[in-house]
């Protein structure tokens, strides 16, 4: 187990190098000279432009630039934001928790609903229930999250007026008691989390269904039936645990999608998270902040994959006891 962990950790090194290199290339998407940057963002003062050149050492040979960039990234030093001059990493750090909270909540609800839906449709593939969920899945795949967000805002925020549609706290938040504060935040999170949940539900319930169908065909399921074990117990204990394993990997792979999705979600609902930070940075061409966000996003993805792999190795006795 320990050797597996170390091996896995070691394999991240080339990926990390790659991430820094690709993000470095993005800086150079801006064709040619740094003056182009000024053209893109007229608000960049001559001094800021000078700082940018110094930050990325844009006047040095390209290899020197990259090594310079790499050294800084390792120290998580992405320079200072154009907007307020504070360190990029500090700005990201204060915005990250709310993004992680929303994603964790949505994942929880996604799994909560995806399991029953996927399992029930796997029991009778092409049955009535399965056909209904197929329809739902297609709509889920085709519905833009921001459109769903708009519709829910229109319905609950404007027509019914029962849910807040913007931010994560009410304007009178500071005057509330601590219990009311939590309730206030929870209320603000209902719509964003619902939208994120709906988006992920379609895919996950499909995975659960596909895995269960595969597992239910296996020999050991037949053995369980032959021993007189009831169908409910076979599905919920013997099959489910096997079907769970590949889902751990999928869960890890869903991290970049969730993070990317939070850009849209947080922008629509005006949630001060990392996604919205990156969006604002893009609008104002705050390059240090953008680059920091991209690298941190990729590193978070790597972390997600690593955690998923370790969980898998721990959960699957075939890897745990090798």
């Amino acid at each position: 187990m320990l050797s597996y962990f170390l091996k896995r950790l070691f394999s991240l090194v080339p990926l990390l190098l790659g991430i820094t290199f690709i993000s470095f290339l993005i800086i150079h998407l801006a064709p040619g000279k740094p003056s182009y940057l000024k053209e893109m963002n007229p608000r960049i003062s001559a001094e800021a432009q000078e700082r940018l050149i110094r930050l990325y050492q844009l006047d040095k040979p390209i290899l020197v630039q990259y090594i310079h960039w790499l050294k800084r990234v390792i120290k998580l030093d992405f320079g200072n934001s154009f907007a307020d001059g504070r360190k990029v990493i500090v700005r990201i750090r204060e915005r990250l928790p709310i993004t992680l909270l929303i994603n964790a909540l949505s994942l929880f609800f996604i799994l909560l609903f995806a399991f029953p839906v996927g399992i029930i449709s796997s029991l009778k593939p092409n049955g009535v229930f399965d056909k209904c969920t197929t329809l739902f899945v297609f709509i889920g795949f085709s519905l833009p999250s921001f459109y769903l967000a708009l519709l829910l805002m229109l319905l609950f925020g404007i027509k019914l007026g029962c849910l807040p549609i913007s931010g994560i706290v009410s304007f009178n938040h500071s005057q509330l008691s601590s219990g009311e504060r939590i309730l206030d935040i929870a209320k603000h999170l209902i719509l964003p989390v619902s939208v994120a949940t709906f988006g992920g539900l379609a895919g996950f319930s499909r995975y659960v269904r596909a895995n269960m169908i595969e597992v239910l065909k296996q020999d050991y399921i037949r053995t369980a039936y032959a021993q007189g074990i009831g169908r409910g117990r076979i599905v919920c204990k013997f099959a489910l645990k096997n079907a769970l394993l590949p889902l751990i990997t999928i869960l890890g792979l869903s991290v970049p999608g969730l993070l990317g999705g939070s850009v849209i979600l947080e922008s629509v609902f005006a949630i001060p998270g990392m996604g919205r930070l990156l969006y604002e940075a893009t609008l104002s061409r705050d390059y240090p902040l953008i680059m920091g966000g991209v690298v941190i996003g990729a590193v978070l993805t790597l972390l997600g994959n690593l955690i998923a792999d370790l969980c898998y190795a721990w959960a699957d006795p075939r890897i745990r006891y090798q």
Binding site: Y220, A226, Q227, N242
Partner: peptide
Amino acid sequence: RGAEIAYIFQNPLSSLNPV
């Protein structure tokens, strides 16, 4: 099943639950 009529299958490894 199991109590009166019991089975042994071929491929014992795949017939036992791996987890």
